[in-house]
Design a protein around this nucleic acid. Structure first.
Length: 562
RNA sequence: GGCCCGUUGGAGAAACGGUUAACUCACCGCCCUCUCAAGGCGGCACUCACGGGUUCGAACCCCGUACGGGCUACCA
């Protein structure tokens, strides 16, 4: 550092260099030092380097998850690099602890960056507030080149300008004749910097209103904009860079190949392109992802973190939507041809499918909870007993202690319950999320069954107490749970018949006067006595898992309540 | 207001100038069925926001209108 400083002293400086030196006396690195420090990455042909750049303003947004998921997949499938950088240049909005939280939540979905503010990496620091020394070098360079200047306008003055512009219906902003400080002489600028006036640094836009810039967006194709003419702020009065500037410097020196970001950034593209061009830097490839929308009162709007529960990834985690199912939904949202592929490759890993920009939609997709539910059901349905039991336990340990205790009290028993009609081509699909499990199976546990049956016995009103007791007694006399499922059921029909129930629903419908009801009615009485509810998973297996003793005590207890 | 982006059934969408406009979810009907969850079969856009044009031919190309969304900060 000393060496560079001394070199400068001996040289004759231009006025711009003097100004730059005055503002950044301690900055001695040059642009080419940075180029050497952060050389282009050596990666195989076609490898994509992508990034996710959250700001630490709270929990992970569903839209951010979707965007980072896409970026991550793109990098992984091309054997590239995915990194996460924290955009914390606005300290006012920062929420403590959220930067760790974001990474944790990404991790839950299997999205682990190759480089980040916790994983480290060669192109760091990965936190913008720690990269000030880099931005300073670039800003100093811009000042030296006369491409940037300090602006001393106060908020009040800027408001005045805006008002004036509104009055005469001019475009708002700091540009052209309105950009007062742009025309300050270097001497004046130096003088005011010296007198410690608070100031920002603005980029001196070379743009002109009539010119157009065009970009090729990887998703949308060619987009044409009017050139940027605003002298945007690149350094705030607190010395930190603005988003526009910081991201740009980072997206050059961190060497991403593709910038995947939300559509809301498209409008600022002209600014970013102008900056890249002015600095002589190669533009990365931009891909603007559609925002996730929600339908409300027949209108679409952006999913809002404040108003919509489903905007927060946490919401789904708490309810226990299966991660695999959620990822699958993200895939269907990301690429329109994924579903078709899935149909043809039901058992394959979803990551065998390669995402492509061409198959991304242009229109902001609605977040379809119904479809999430459907996919989640499929996903839970496909899991093996071991898998669903293990994952349910993990979920319960974090979000539902009561349920966790129940599972842990007898894990094998829980697995037996979860194994009911699992596996095979057409597995049961009872659950869409882990939170659904317990309410459906709580009756399998005595401590819950006896509470529930005390509260409610939803028997069909058309049966009298004596009829119900007769049904239960007859069943108790011969529950047949050691038989095969088929034998058990025909046995059940036989017992039912002796109690006056038609073995087939059709028979009952044809001669309702000859029977008390049909086999369904008969089974319902027993089901209620044993489970305290009208619906259960396959009753045969329920009975087998409960076992003879429990069945007897439960039915006897139920009878005692009548 | 200005600048961008978008517009195919309730939702996600395919078709990339040429047969009766794929497919998935939802919905409806039927079947199966001891309940539920499933599963099977079938139905659901005389038409691609609207109006012009180009073409032998348009959902696909062009123009205009409408509607929806985004941006328009010393926020990201």
């Amino acid at each position: 550092m000393v060496k560079y400083g001394m070199m400068k002293v001996g040289m004759i400086m231009t006025p711009n260099q003097l100004l730059a030196q005055l503002i950044f006396p301690d900055v001695s690195l040059s642009l080419s030092d940075l180029e050497n420090r952060f050389p282009p990455r050596k990666l195989p042909e076609g490898a994509m380097v992508t990034r996710f750049a959250p700001s630490p303003t709270g929990f992970l947004h569903t839209g951010s998850l979707s965007a980072s998921f896409i970026s991550w997949r793109l990098a992984k499938q091309s054997r590239g690099v995915f990194f996460v950088r924290l955009e914390d240049t606005d300290q006012k909005r920062e929420i403590t602890g959220s930067k760790e939280k974001v990474l944790e939540e990404l991790h839950v979905f299997g999205i682990d960056p190759d480089e980040s503010y916790v994983h480290g990496g060669e192109y760091g620091p990965y936190i913008q507030s720690e990269r000030k020394w880099i931005y300073d070098v670039v800003i100093k360079h811009l000042l030296e080149q006369g491409l940037a200047y300090p602006c001393f306008c106060t908020h009040e003055e800027l408001d005045l300008i805006r008002k004036k512009q509104e009055e005469i219906k001019a475009n708002p902003g700091y540009y052209g004749e309105y950009a007062k400080c742009r025309y300050l002489s270097v001497e004046q600028a130096c003088k005011r910097v010296n007198s410690k006036n608070s100031y920002v640094i603005r980029f001196k836009s070379p743009g002109n209103e009539e010119s157009r810039v065009s970009v090729r967006d990887a998703i949308r194709g060619e987009i044409v904009f009017p050139e940027n003419i605003q002298d945007i702020v690149i350094m705030k009065s607190d010395g930190l860079p603005t988003y526009h500037f910081a991201h740009l410097v980072d997206d050059h020196f961190m060497r991403p190949t593709h910038i995947t970001r939300g559509e809301e950034w498209m409008a600022s593209l002209p600014i970013h392109l102008q900056l890249f061009d002015s600095l002589g830097w190669e533009r990365p490839i931009y891909a603007h992802l559609p925002v996730i929308m929600k339908l409300e009162d027949g209108k679409r709007r952006k999913l809002s973190k404040r108003k919509d529960l489903e905007a927060s990834v946490r919401y789904f985690l708490e309810l226990g939507y299966p991660i695999e199912g959620f990822l699958e939904y993200l895939m269907t949202m990301a690429n329109t041809n994924f579903e078709e592929w899935r149909l043809a490759h039901q058992l394959d890993n979803i990551f065998d499918f390669d995402l492509s920009f061409q198959k991304m939609t242009l229109d902001g997709g609605l977040f379809d909870l119904e479809k999430v539910k459907y996919i989640a059901k499929e996903s839970l349905g496909r899991m093996s007993t071991e898998e669903i039991a293990g994952k349910a336990l993990l979920w319960a340990q974090e979000y539902d202690q009561k349920f966790a205790k129940v599972i842990e009290s007898d894990y094998e028993y829980f697995k037996a319950i979860m194994s009911i009609e699992r596996g095979g081509d057409k597995p049961r699909k009872d659950y869409e999320k882990y939170a659904d499990i317990f309410p459906i199976i709580s009756f399998m546990y005595d401590e819950y069954f006896y509470e529930e049956i005390k509260l409610e016995r939803p028997f069909n009103d058309k049966y009298r107490k004596t009829e119900i007791i007769k049904v239960l007694d007859s069943f108790l006399a011969n529950p047949g749970i050691d038989l095969s499922e088929e034998e058990w059921f025909s046995n059940l029909k036989n017992i039912g018949e002796t109690c006056g129930f038609a073995p087939r629903a059709k028979d009952y419908k044809q001669h309702p006067d000859q029977y008390l009801g049909h086999i369904g009615d008969f089974a319902e009485i027993i089901r209620i006595a044993v489970s305290a509810r009208k619906n259960t998973p396959n009753f045969y297996y329920v009975l087998k898992i409960l076992g003879y003793d429990k069945i007897v005590s439960r039915i006897k207890y139920t009878i005692s309540l009548l």
